[in-house]
């Protein structure tokens, strides 16, 4: 396994009176795509939000590139080179696609070559460049949300359920895009419910239940073991094909 880029050790997160993360231990290897699986309410989204500092951890250590980031402010965490694609996509509906991208390029105007690469991955963004993002379809908004996260090179991208409610044709486009990012050695932590999608991309996998990691290993091992899938997730890859 590659060297860890992100490590969570014994991370607890409380939201109000609710104790959501109950000691999460997770390692995201550098240059790999790690999939975080688990049923609804297992704590996957909370894990991503805790990493981003949107919900600060109440206990435990989060280390990014050797530096502790637990409890830091969200902008400071983002500035370390962590991109975030939330489950809600978080596109600015009143801003045009171009303005969304301009904001995401924090260090200066979007680089033309990189934009061309993004347009190659998501051609609809070029077509709707001057259109308010609120008018895009759900799939196009998801493309914009991912494009925003990669408009500048990032060390780590956190992506929360990108295929949720998205048409199969667009999911195929996303698979291509994520494969491109993997080729580029971008480290990705992907929360996903679509096991087929996750299995086609993941290098390593962690399964959550009740606010804890209950399984860690390679995606290949999980994808080829339907008994393990059944035990951990209550499903098998075959059922999703």
């Amino acid at each position: 396994m590659s060297q860890a880029l992100l490590t969570l050790e014994g991370v607890h997160t409380h939201i109000g009176q609710y104790h959501i993360l109950q000691g999460v231990d997770l390692v995201v290897p550098r240059g790999e795509l790690t999939v975080l699986l688990g049923r609804n309410g297992a704590g996957k989204t909370t894990t991503l939000r805790t990493i981003m500092g949107l919900w600060p951890p109440s206990k435990g250590t989060i280390t990014f590139d050797g530096q502790p980031i637990g409890g830091q402010a969200t902008p400071d965490i983002a500035r370390l080179g962590i991109g975030y694609v939330p489950e809600s996509m978080g596109v600015f509906a009143d801003l045009t696609v171009a303005e969304n991208m301009r904001l995401a390029a924090r260090l200066g105007p979007p680089d033309a070559t990189r934009l061309d690469w993004i347009f190659g991955l998501f051609p609809a963004l070029k077509r709707f460049w001057q259109l308010p993002a609120g008018l895009l379809s759900g799939g196009q908004k998801q493309m914009l949300s991912i494009a925003r996260a990669i408009v500048e090179p990032k060390s780590l991208i956190l992506i929360d359920e990108p295929t949720k409610g998205i048409a199969p044709a667009i999911i195929e486009g996303m698979i291509t895009a994520f494969k491109e990012l993997k080729r580029d050695k971008t480290t990705i932590l992907l929360v996903e419910q679509n096991f087929r999608f996750a299995a086609s991309l993941g290098d390593s996998v962690a399964v959550m239940d009740d606010g804890r990691i209950v399984h860690r290993g390679t995606m290949q091992a999980l994808a080829s073991d339907s008994a393990l899938q059944s035990r951990l997730l209550g499903l098998s890859l075959a059922a999703h094909q």
Binding site: M52, L54, A73, T74, P75, A78, R79, Y84, P86, G90, F92, A93, D94, L95, L103, A104, R106, R148
Partner: peptide, 16 residues
Amino acid sequence: RAGVENREMVEALGYR
């Protein structure tokens, strides 16, 4: 304008 819509996402893009 972005902050009026979604403050949290503006912060997640790295802006204070």
